[in-house]
Every structure is written in structure tokens, then in C-alpha cells.
Design a protein around this nucleic acid. Structure first.
Lengths: 193, 193
DNA sequence: CCAAATCATTGATCGAAATCAAGAAATACA
DNA sequence: TGTATTTCTTGATTTCGATCAATGATTTGG
């Protein structure tokens, strides 16, 4: 049932059988169709999501109605509006399914129980958020100090598994470019080879 | 000696007297003059830094020699190149003192001992990195989806304590603008009022 | 206290990405 | 299978921030 989850868990923090049993009690499953929405801006984010299968994305919509994709989450990844999750303030992000997906939900109450009752769960959480912070830092640096061409190449190399599954205009949105600009970036890169 | 540190610590995770004694053994102090460098790109980041007094900054230098400030750390904040700290790969960041400063250093070995020996230290670390992640996320969103004018106003409102202590060209660098552009942003905003 | 360095502003020009517009290609689905 | 929708590309134009250049203001430290 949660084998894949615990496999990923175990990569960051060793998990004993008794912990597995405890943690399993606090997880729930959900199936999603492509485009199903898990979180709307303005709602409080009451769960974190772990993707077992498929892909989710988090994005904002700015005052001009433009989407800005903040994160993709293919299988094995976690996603949430952590700001809203921790503060219980309204979310600034939307989260929806890019593909038909199967996910695990962890409610905030359950998350807190697990933090207090399972030491390895706390360690896992710490490792997870640390890795997420470092990845975000690097992405931010790259987007601040590289050309669009470099950002695109970096993204394709770093996340081929995402790049090959989502439409180009979503990659453009993730990189902070318009689809037209990304198309021209691709042409430039193809020509340069 | 470490009163201020434990005060901040306690805001995120309650700390008992015995833990304080243990943790104190693993902290060391350092005084810095303005412009003193704590970390160079290419070196391994072997410590995290807590600012007791003064202000530090972390920044990258891109291939054109332009600085991009990643973070300011006034008193009460932590700073490090966490990517390098955790992986022991060469740092991509520089860290130096924006003002004369007094800091606490925590070496990686000490950090790991504390994680394993003090539960509240682990909780504190988790809370700290979570807050940092959320702050970075919000900064990233704001810089991707707002006008320079909005980014600047947000920054001034959110961090007046930083904004009033650093030269404008550093704020420009933090926001990803040239000093000239920031100067014009300020004029626009002043006129609009 | 003064000279030197740093910092901020302003103007003119340039360039890269956004926007606007249209059409072609691919995909979905009924 | 065929139609509708989504996606991608290409061209023309505009816009906004970067760059280049110069000057003025402020800070620093010898």
C-alpha cells in the first residue's frame, strides 16, 4: 500500500517496522484525474501531498491572470503550500494534477502527531525540507544570474523526467518565460549545436 | 554569552537547561570587521553562522563579475551555504560582513553531534529551515510575478531593519536590478504618492 | 578636516523579452 | 475517424530594464 512512500522515506531516514505501522495509520490515499484541483488560492492548505503516481504542480496566478508554476511534483515527490500549511493562513498557491495521479495525503493534525510520536518522522521531515530548501536556492540563483538559454538547458538536464512529460508552455511558465520566448530559446539552442 | 542565541532558539523550540549546557559546548564566537570574508566560492562551507550583532550577506558572482545577493542576515538570523554545508561540495556562495559583526559558529561535526544528542536541537533545526524555505518561496514568487516597483515596496515593508542599514546598490542586487533601475523605481514610487 | 572612495542620480541609447497576431501542428475525445 | 481543442511556431512591434556615460552627493578614514 505505502511501499513506495516508505522506500523514499527510508532514503532520507531509516524507518523501523513499528514506526511504519504508526505512520501508516496517519496516511490516506486519493486518486486524481488530470486537471483535478487539490488546493485553491485562498483556501487553507490542510495537507501535504506525496505523489505515488502521475504528476502534480503548484502555481500562482498573478493580477494579470498569468500562471507561474512554482513546482512540479512527479512520483516520489512531496508538494504543498507550506506557508499555508504551517501558518493556517490562506494559500497563495493552486495545486492540481498535470496527469492522472495517485497520491498520499497527510493532514496537518496527523503530521503533528507523527512529529511528536516518531523520531524518524521528524528526521525525515527535516531532511526533506532541507533538500527542498537547497533545491529552491539553486533554482533561484540560476534564474537570477543565468540567461534564459542556460536556465532552460539546466532544467532539461536536471529534470528530464519532468521535461519530457509536460507541455512546453508549462516549462516556460516554470522558467518565467512566455511560450513564444521559450520556442525561440529552443530554436537558438538547436541551431547552436 | 549565548543568551541571545538561546532566546531565538527558544522561540522555535523550548530548550531545557541541560540542553543549553550541551549545546553551548559546541558553539564558538568570532568578531568580524566590515568586509571580512567568511566563505569564498569554491571553499567548502564548514560552519553555519548565527549573527549576534551586525549583519552578514551571502552572494554569488556570475560569469560577468556581477554580484547577486542571495540573503542578508542581521542579528538574530542564521546564514550559510547550506548546499555546501550538507554535501561538502565547494560553495557557490560568498559570505561576508556588511557591518562589523559578532557571530556564533557551529561546525558541521558539532551540528551532527547536536542533532543526534539533543532532540530540541533537531526540532529547532527543522523549524529554522522550514521558516527559511517558506521565506525563500515567497521571495521567489514575488520576484517572478511582480513588477520591480512591487518587489521593492514589499522588501521595504517586510525588512525595514535591513533596508535602512544597507546601501541601495545592495538592495538593487538583492532584488535583481541595477542600481540605476532601482533609483528610477524609487523616483516613480515617490512621485506616485 | 580634507581627499579619496563609495554611492546615488539622471540622461541617452540599446537589446532582449513581452506582446500582439496569425497560422501550423499535434492531441484529445466523442 | 474527424472535429475541436490545445499546443507550438513564426513574424512584427512595443516595452522595460540594462548599459554607457557623466555628474553630484555622501561617507570614510588618514
Amino acid at each position: 500500500m505505502f511501499d513506495f512512500y516508505f522506500e523514499k522515506f527510508n532514503e532520507k531516514a531509516p524507518v523501523a517496522t513499528t514506526d511504519k505501522a504508526l505512520i501508516s495509520k496517519h496516511l490516506s490515499l486519493k486518486s486524481l484525474k488530470k486537471k483535478d484541483i487539490l488546493l485553491q488560492e485562498g483556501a487553507v492548505c490542510k495537507h501535504t501531498f506525496f505523489v505515488q503516481k502521475g504528476m502534480l504542480r503548484a502555481y500562482t496566478i498573478d493580477e494579470n491572470g498569468n500562471e507561474h508554476i512554482v513546482q512540479f511534483a512527479p512520483e516520489g515527490w512531496h508538494i504543498a503550500d507550506l506557508y499555508s500549511f504551517f501558518t493556517e493562513e490562506p494559500a497563495t498557491l493552486f495545486i492540481d494534477a498535470v496527469e492522472d495521479s495517485e497520491i498520499i495525503l497527510i493532514a496537518k493534525e496527523d503530521h503533528e502527531i507523527l512529529l511528536s510520536q516518531s523520531h524518524c518522522y521528524e528526521t525525515f521531515t527535516r531532511e526533506l525540507i532541507t533538500a527542498a530548501y537547497v533545491a529552491l536556492q539553486q533554482r533561484f540563483n540560476s534564474s537570477m544570474s543565468s540567461s534564459p538559454d542556460m536556465c532552460y538547458s539546466d532544467f532539461m538536464n536536471r529534470y528530464p523526467n519532468i521535461a519530457n512529460r509536460v507541455p512546453q508552455h508549462m516549462i516556460a511558465s516554470y522558467l518565467g518565460l512566455t511560450p513564444e520566448t521559450l520556442s525561440r530559446v529552443r530554436r537558438r539552442i538547436a541551431k547552436a549545436k
